[in-house]
Design a protein around this nucleic acid. Structure first.
Lengths: 138, 138
DNA sequence: ATGACTGCAAAGACTTTGCATCTTT
DNA sequence: AAAGATGCAAAGTCTTTGCAGTCAT
């Protein structure tokens, strides 16, 4: 990719990063990641494109973690784990939401279901270890 | 409750409302609801108290719906339905998250689990009906 | 030329916070 | 007097948006 292209099509870089990371980044995380390679990237462009991708369904929003919206380039339904200490978001690929629930919800509410989000919140392994160490030495 | 108390202990009124509604209100919804009875209530007080209750565990946060944080006075784990059209949040008391998942997540992540949130998103019965009517007459 | 994409900065929405005031004890 | 709760407004954070400039066709 030549330099003039790099100046131009930041959009692709943003989507590409979302698709290739499992960090479930916020707008600012995307910005910080791409800034070194695209020095004149602006935060507004990141927000603008994320918002467009979301509307088109190219990416999904995981909702806000600590007041900051997080995104996922993997649009297949899957379960997430959010660390309440370090705000990391991880996939739980082996956990499945029972399909049956969808139908149950539809019949119970009389509404339609677009998506179903299952999220576990707690301390990730790292933070758990660190906080235990902290207690030991305290 | 005499007038001087009413001027003073807005805190109780806020918690009490949260406990007795199933509307999963935002800070502003709490404010609007209580304002008629407590005319000098301020939004800052609502935010301050909600944040305190949340920290104490007296209420829980459901995360943001359309950028606005929603609260629930019912701290027992239960499943929610969010209407993506009118932003209503409803309980799904009959739906349960299989207990077994918790253990599976713990062993899979090596972390600890505090809470597990299962949320279905779609159109509620009302909005579905309305939008269908709209299509018919369009 | 026209349309698409972007940088920049201003504006916007939601939430938090500092300070003075008022109530309770 | 001291501690607790609140109103008000300013500040803070995250996000959106208007406008002018740049690039592609």
């Amino acid at each position: 990719m030549d330099s003039s292209q790099k100046q131009f099509k930041k959009r692709n870089a943003i989507l590409s990063y979302l698709r290739n990371t499992d960090s479930h980044p916020s707008a600012e995380m995307v910005y910080n990641y791409l800034k070194p390679e695209y020095p004149d990237l602006s935060l507004g462009t990141v927000y603008r494109n994320l918002s467009m991708f979301k509307a088109k369904g190219d990416i999904i929003s995981l909702g806000a973690v600590n007041g900051v919206e997080r995104f996922d380039g993997n649009t297949c339904p899957h379960v997430h784990f959010v660390c309440t200490t370090c705000d990391a978001v991880n996939d739980l690929p082996k956990i499945q939401v029972p399909e049956a629930l969808n139908e149950e919800v539809k019949s119970q509410t009389g509404g339609s279901i677009d998506v179903c989000q299952l999220t576990f919140m707690g301390q990730c392994k790292n933070c758990l270890t660190t906080s235990l160490k902290g207690e030991e030495t305290a």
